[in-house]
Design a protein around this nucleic acid. Structure first.
Lengths: 254, 254
DNA sequence: CTTGACTCCGACGTTACGTCAGGGCTTAGC
DNA sequence: GCTAAGCCCTGACGTAACGTCGGAGTCAAG
């Protein structure tokens, strides 16, 4: 055992070997993502081989699109749900890729319109392509983002829920949203019987989707209330008014 | 001509119709991207149909990945180089898509390693996939981003440059970078003859790529010096030391 | 002891907004 | 005419993952 004290390097050398910047290492340190092996008396950071290995894991997870916060969770736990996280992340990437493919389609359509010498059609063409994409994505949000603990359950849910149920849920959901929006337009009282009925339908749908799993249900509610978990380009398929209405109705009813 | 004063709407209604938020319209106004048709005495913004049309154009360009700044340029000029910009943007999107495809490949490889019950191989697998991607992208940067005026010239350059020339340039480039890095290691004096030779090779390569087009050459230099034009995940394939060295050498030489 | 290279840290900039707070404006109903 | 609800304004701050800058401390060589 002569390997007692492995060679420790200072930050610049370590950063160069690992292919990152000094400033990034500062950040990772501050976030608790990657701490130096030791500090000199004067506060210089010193890194060794284990830190290099961990940094490579961090970079690998960053490459596949996890945020630093997610990476911290994934590498932090004793038994990280890495396999599940990777599967979910795959879905996220696939969706982003589809988004880019829509953009490509839009560009190609626009180029065709330009080549055909119809600049007047250009914007209409682009708009059509974009609308098709956004309609496709309306339903996607529901199964999109879950945080932390309920990962496994959600994943099992996806495996055990047949596609037909999902499709039926999608239809029910669309209809319910339309009904709520219409109730808002008619200025229905959120404490009325009609509103309570809508709230019950809402609860039933959420319950159907979560199949009575309280943890998943709570996760959904948290997501619902905390928009910071939604992707940047996400737009709710219902209005703020409908949102406020259904919340009020659910608080009023039994 | 009874169409004198079209209907003007206030910001909330306009935003709802267009599918954007009030705050986004505030931003577009401040950036000069979309000004309201009129203001009331008290400063309320009023929007009409032409503004809706322009907003749809803005959203279309945003959808295909242009920044708001770029959109302002594209919609601002009298004869916007829209066709060229779309072609270049297509390239940008294609590269982003390839990036995501690499991430998918990495995830799939990792999943295979996990299924095979070899968690030890997991990180090595990921690292290999990522390295392949990054090597592929090393050369891409050169033709990646050009700002504004030289767009058309660059695009013509790409059409008129045969692939063999690009490949030869790529090889020369790689060799030159290696030589510079090695000179840095040997602490070669930037004002020495050897450094001047390197600087000349550098100039020759840049000149070959830009084919004597002064505007493109200036654009490259500006890009070179202004990293804000580079994509966020871009990393130079040479070190800061090499960067400083070659700049010093080019300033010293004849 | 100086010089140059290295290190630390805080503060600010980046993109395209969202959120909040503190204040004016408008309008319907009384 | 007054008031309350709802609309509108603005500025300030937050977001992710750093890059850049600047001022100050540290270290090794000459």
């Amino acid at each position: 055992m002569v390997t007692g004290a492995a060679k420790l390097r200072r930050i610049t050398e370590f950063a160069r070997d690992a292919g990152v910047t000094v400033r990034a290492l500062h950040l990772y340190d501050r976030l608790g993502l990657l701490k130096p092996a030791a500090l000199t008396e004067s506060g210089y950071r010193l890194y060794g081989e284990p830190e290099l290995a961990r940094l490579e894991q961090i970079l690998a997870l960053r490459f596949v699109g996890f945020t630093l916060e997610q990476i911290k969770e994934l590498l932090g736990g004793s038994t990280p749900p890495l396999a599940t996280a990777l599967r979910m992340q795959r879905e996220v990437i696939v969706r982003r890729k589809r988004r880019l493919e829509s953009a490509l389609a839009a560009i190609d359509e626009a180029a065709r319109a330009l080549d055909a010498g119809e600049p007047a059609d250009l914007w209409a063409t682009l708009r059509d392509v974009i609308e098709v994409f956004e309609v496709q994505n309306d339903w996607e949000w529901t199964k999109q983002y879950y945080s932390g603990e309920a990962l496994e359950r959600v994943e099992e849910l996806q495996r055990t829920t047949p596609a037909s149920v999902v499709e039926q849920g999608q239809r029910d959901w669309t209809v319910l949203i339309a009904d709520v929006e219409e109730a808002v337009v008619r200025a229905v009282d959120p404490s009325s019987d009609e509103a309570r009925t809508l709230a019950n339908r809402w609860r039933a749908l959420v319950g159907q989707f979560t199949q009575g799993d309280a943890e998943v249900s709570r996760g959904l509610n948290r997501l619902w209330n905390d928009s910071t978990h939604w992707p940047a380009d996400f737009k709710r398929p219902w209005s703020d008014a409908a949102d406020a209405f259904i919340k009020a109705a659910m608080n009023c009813g039994t």
